[in-house]
Amino acid sequence: MAVIRPIAAQDYEVWAVLFGGYAAFYQVQQSAQMRETVWSWLHDPAHELSGLIAFDAGGTAVGLAHYRPFARPLSATIGGWLDDLFVDPGARGEAIGKQLIAAVAAIGRERGWSVIRWLTAEDNYRARSSYDKIASKTKFLTYDLAL
């Protein structure tokens, strides 16, 4: 069982490695400035983004989750959006991702959120296999309009 807690100021180095691994997994070029921006959001009480970090029994950081609230006008509720979920490849298969999702869900329940929602790449079969066991796949497609 992983130890999961909110990301703290002393976690920058291990968080940066995990976040860099997440970017590499999705083949996204990420600069140090981009990481600094996200890090600043995570520590700005006025910003909506929050984060969790997971440690294995030996104290090694093995996963992260970034999440935030979002308005759901059709249901007149607030939901939780799981923006980023990453588990170090060496720790996969140990249910770290499920534990991080459960931790975000617990936060959502405490805050009265109606749902936790996330997306993943269509070809992320390993993760999808896990997600299919704990959540319902929606019928919606995602579109981006670059600005």
Rank of each mutant, 00 (worst) to 15 (best):
Ile53Cys: 04
Val87Pro: 00
Ala91Pro: 00
Met34His: 10
Leu141Ile: 09
Ala9Cys: 10
Arg128Thr: 01
Ser50Cys: 12
Tyr143Glu: 05
Ser40Gln: 14
Trp39Tyr: 02
Leu74Tyr: 05
Tyr125Ile: 15
Ala135Glu: 01
Gly58Phe: 05
Gly63Leu: 12
Asp56His: 04
Ala91Asp: 02
Ala95Arg: 15
Ser136Tyr: 03
Arg35Leu: 15
Ala146Val: 14
Lys139Cys: 07
Asn124Lys: 10
Gln33Phe: 06
Ala54Ser: 06
Glu36Pro: 00
Arg72Asp: 11
Ala102Val: 02
Ile134Val: 15
Leu42Val: 02
Ala46Phe: 05
His47Gly: 04
Asp44Gln: 11
Gly80Glu: 08
Asn124Cys: 13
Pro45Gly: 06
His47Arg: 11
Gly20Lys: 07
Met1Asn: 08
Ala102Leu: 07
Gly112Leu: 14
Ile4Arg: 07
Ile78Trp: 01
Arg128Val: 05
Tyr131Gly: 04
Ser75Arg: 10
Ala24Phe: 02
Gly97Ile: 05
Trp113Ser: 03
Gly63Phe: 00
Thr37Ser: 12
Ile107Ala: 08
His43Leu: 09
Ala65Asn: 02
Ile101Gly: 02
Ala102Gly: 07
Ala95Thr: 06
Ser50Thr: 05
Ala103Leu: 10
Leu49Asn: 12
Ile116His: 00
Ala91Gly: 03
Thr77Glu: 11
Thr37Trp: 04
Leu42Arg: 01
Gln10Pro: 02
Gln30His: 03
Leu74Gly: 04
Ser130Trp: 03
Gly58Val: 07
Asp132His: 09
Ala23Pro: 02
Val104Ile: 08
Leu85Gln: 01
Phe70Met: 13
Gly63Ala: 13
Leu85Tyr: 00
His43Lys: 07
Glu122Gly: 14
